[in-house]
Design a protein around this nucleic acid. Structure first.
Lengths: 192, 192
DNA sequence: GCAAATGCCTAACAGTATTAGGGTGTGGTC
DNA sequence: GACCACACCCTAATACTGTTAGGCATTTGC
C-alpha cells in the first residue's frame, strides 16, 4: 500500500485544520484519520493518543500566534504596540477559532515551559517597556494584559458582543485607549 | 424497583459535582448514571443527551455565580464593589473549577438569553454606576471588566500564575487598584 | 542488495452515546 | 376504592470512538 507521508507535525496541522472546521472539542482521532485517508490506529505512530493530539494542536497554535504577534509588534511601541498585540490575538481567534481554543488547553508544567507560551509573556513584557513601570507593577500589568486579551477574544469568539451596540471593533479601540491611559498613569502603592 | 427520584435539576447538580471532581470535559453520561445508581439510558428522561447535560450544568453554574455576586455586591460601591465582584468570580472558580469551566460553555442565543448571563452583565453595569461613565463608555467598560474577570480567573485556574512571584492574590489586589483608578480617570474621546 | 526500522494495516476489545420498547409504581378521577 | 394514564426506570441493541497487539511491506542506511 502506498504511504501517506505523515509525521507528527503534519498530523497536528491536519488536526488544526479540522479543529477550525468543526470546533476543537469535536476533534476526534477517527475523524482525523478519515480525512487523512488512513486507518485510525495508523495515527498512533505519530501521536500518543487523543490527549496528545490535542496538545500537539495547541503547541502549533501557540507557535503560530507567537509568530504573528512578533511580526505585529515589530517597530511599534506604546499605544500602537498595544493595539497591534491585541489585534493579533483577536484576528487569530477569528480566523482560527479551533486553533485558538486549542491554545487555551491546560498542559502540564514541562510541556508548557517548552511551548511558545513563554514567548507570549516575553512579548507582553517587551511591550511594557514603552511605559514607565517598575517591578512588581510590571508583572501585575503583564497579568492584566494577558487576562484582558485572552478574556476579550474568548468572549468575542463566543459571540458575547454580537447582540449589542457598539460593535466589538469599535469597543476594542476604546478599550485600547483606556488601557494605554492606564499604563501611562499606573497608580502608585500609596492607594488602598 | 425503587425509584431514584431524579429530575433535570438533580441530574444537573450531580453533573456539577462530577465536573468539579474530574473536570468539566470529562463529564460523561455513563459515569454520571453510575454515580446516581441508575442505568445510563435512564438519564435521557431528564436531559436530552450529553450536550444538553453540559448545558444544564452551565446554566446551574451561571445561576450560582450570579447569586454569589449579587450577595457580594450588596451594600458596596466603587473600589469595594469592584474587588467584591472580582473576588466572587475568583473564589467560585477556585472552589468549583468544573462548574466554572461549564459556565464558559458557548450556548445558542436563545438559551443564553434565558440564562443568568444577563444578570451578570446587569451587575457589572450596576457596579459602574459608582463611577462617572456615560454611554458608550459604560458599555466599553462593562466589556473590559467582563473580559478581565473572565480572563483572570481562567488563567489563574489553569495555573498560569503559579510559578512566578508575586502570588496571584497580591497581584489581583493591585490590578483592582489599577482598574479602579482607570474607571475614575477614563480617557475622553479626544485621544487617538 | 540486505537488514533493520518505519509506516501503515487488520483484528479485537472496552467504553460512551443514543434509540427503542417494556414493566411498574404513583397519582388523579369517577 | 378501582382504574387509567403517565412518569420513571429498566434491558436490549446499535453505532461510534479510543486504544492495544501484532503483521506485512516499503523505505533507508550500510
Amino acid at each position: 500500500m502506498e504511504r501517506s507521508g505523515l509525521s507528527t507535525r503534519r498530523v497536528a496541522e491536519a488536526g488544526a485544520e479540522l479543529a477550525d472546521e468543526v470546533g476543537f472539542d469535536r476533534v476526534t482521532v477517527s475523524d482525523l484519520a478519515r480525512r487523512l485517508g488512513v486507518a485510525t490506529p495508523s495515527l498512533y505512530s505519530h501521536v500518543a493518543g487523543s490527549a496528545d493530539l490535542r496538545t500537539q494542536i495547541a503547541l502549533l497554535a501557540l507557535e503560530e500566534m507567537a509568530d504573528r504577534s512578533t511580526e505585529a509588534l515589530a517597530g511599534r511601541s506604546g499605544r500602537e504596540a498595544l493595539a497591534a498585540l491585541g489585534s493579533s490575538y483577536r484576528t487569530y481567534a477569528r480566523e482560527h477559532p479551533g486553533r485558538y481554543a486549542a491554545a487555551r488547553l491546560p498542559m502540564d508544567t514541562t510541556t508548557a515551559a517548552a511551548s511558545a507560551g513563554p514567548r507570549h509573556a516575553a512579548m507582553t513584557r517587551a511591550l511594557l517597556r514603552g511605559y514607565d513601570l517598575t517591578e512588581p507593577d510590571a508583572t501585575h500589568a503583564v497579568r492584566l494584559l494577558g487576562s484582558l486579551f485572552h478574556g476579550w477574544s474568548s468572549l468575542e469568539l463566543a459571540g458575547g458582543f454580537d447582540h449589542s451596540a457598539p460593535d466589538a471593533g469599535t469597543s476594542w479601540e476604546r478599550v485600547v485607549d483606556a488601557v494605554d491611559h492606564l499604563l501611562r498613569t499606573w497608580p502608585g502603592e500609596e492607594r488602598r
